[in-house]
Amino acid sequence: MSKLYLKKTQLTEMFTHCRETFPNEACGILAGKDEQVDKIYPTKNVSPTPYTRYLIDPQEQFKIFKEIEKENLEMLAIYHSHTHTHAYPSKTDCELANYPDVFYLIISLVNPKEPVVKSYSIVDGKIKEEEVEIND
């Protein structure tokens, strides 16, 4: 993996989703091609404790995977918000990181007016910060 390219409008869309979902954690999937995000899928957080955890609705996830495949795109990243902590993967984030070939984007709302986004790869529990480039 190298870097992820995101449009400003897409970033804004994710920030809006995270703010609207606050104080619960927001989550979603980013799909695209050649590292450029093309489509954002904000998803429902069905965790029984959405204030501290996220779990993408499995049915919704399955449908999104089908759609991504149909449109000949790839899942490039998974995003979720940290409502009260910085944009760094938690122990649980690492334990449950089942997708070694996608970026994990974390959006911190510690300062809700100025959300921070960071990108990571998580492989076998090892965290590596990755580049994310915001373009127009």
């Binding site: 501290t52 996220y54 779990l55 938690s90 122990k91 649980t92 449950l96 089942n98």
Partner: peptide, 17 residues
């Protein structure tokens, strides 16, 4: 048959999960 790992995470330790 499709095997699809869930997409999940969280803030605290995941013992109860």
């Amino acid at each position: 048959v499709s095997i699809i790992p869930a997409i999940a995470g969280g803030r605290k330790d995941s013992a109860f999960l």
